[in-house]
Design a protein around this nucleic acid. Sequence first.
DNA 1: GGGAGCATGTAACGGGTTACATGATTGG
DNA 2: CCAATCATGTAACCCGTTACATGCTCCC
Lengths: 211, 211
Amino acid sequence: MRRQRSERTEEPRPPAERLPPTAWAVLGLLSFPGERTGYELKKWADSSLRFFYWSPAISQIYAELRRLEGLGYAASRRADPEEPRAKRRYAITAEGRAALARWAEEDDPGPPVLKHPLVLRIWLGHLSDPELLRTRIRAHIDRTRGELREVREALDRAAEGEAWAHPRVALRWSERQHAAELELAEAMLEDLDALEGEPPSALRDGTPTEG
Amino acid sequence: MRRQRSERTEEPRPPAERLPPTAWAVLGLLSFPGERTGYELKKWADSSLRFFYWSPAISQIYAELRRLEGLGYAASRRADPEEPRAKRRYAITAEGRAALARWAEEDDPGPPVLKHPLVLRIWLGHLSDPELLRTRIRAHIDRTRGELREVREALDRAAEGEAWAHPRVALRWSERQHAAELELAEAMLEDLDALEGEPPSALRDGTPTEG
DNA sequence: GGGAGCATGTAACGGGTTACATGATTGG
DNA sequence: CCAATCATGTAACCCGTTACATGCTCCC
């Protein structure tokens, strides 16, 4: 019934505001209607957030929830206050909502960060077997198709109320993003084909592939 | 009985191979013809690697170079062996090249990681002013256009030899990727317009605003 | 009964960042 | 001469991950 782990004697307004993006993402998850457990948050992140941002490890979600509660941005209540590990449902507080809104209006979200291990390997293609590279790209295409299907399933499952309009926009962005990723991969495959189809510079290896 | 960093009595073949991607990326930079300093590596990463992977901090590049040298994957020589901080040029060793090739053929590069702070904010659009969101997207479009220009400049500057064919493929991928990013942002802008154009609640089925 | 999923948490570790310190070289 | 750029490096810090520990509930 009472929350420990928060001393509310001082701190008229915590000037913190310097939280890692993950904290805001988790608080963002809480900003939608409903109360949820860390575990539920993780599953939800896996089926939405992760498509355009990323899904923190479950242990970190718990850590962030504790921090957010410490800051007064979230509040929790447990199913059974006796048990030390009983289910704990979190909800955002008014203060948390205000802080989140302030953060969202802060200057400049910063550029997207992309780490594409496949392209990294293509970039290093001079030390791989060309056929292996193509196999890798095809595997990537397959995986991306799977992801695209998941995005669409998430979209189908997406709640319909007004409150969920923006998440739907984000998911539609992800849908298109994955479709673009497929086209990108296919174009790269063709680039690789062209690389070998056209003889290199000085006719080094005289294997005429065809005609 | 703990091993401290290097017992050179055993280990005919270091089973390490468990390096972070950054180490391989730096070694990858070294795998192209030429000898370079850490500083040069950083600049090069900023104008190529970063478009499809990412550019490590300069301090980390130095750290990775030291590690690679410790593993025998890179070798350095200094301009002036006397001075402790003289310029130091690195080159990949045969062993390093072999290790890199092995790594490149390892199983599964893993999925691309995308962290898109703009889409994160759109996702949280319910707590922002709609016009601010549009401004943000426009700023993103402008920045992306700038990036696209940089990719093209890199492509223009790209060396022409056979040895550079794969980096060129990676850069072309990046060019298309940035073009796609622009389209994605514009589509999202239209989605937001539609969100306000159409009356929010009541009549959620198909009411065509046009016509 | 037992496995899968639900649920919460701790501890260790390392990867990578920022901030800082230092100095050489180059060009207006 | 001064500023910018070149160039190398150290130290502190923390974000986030993996691995582990614990126990519940549901259902075959």
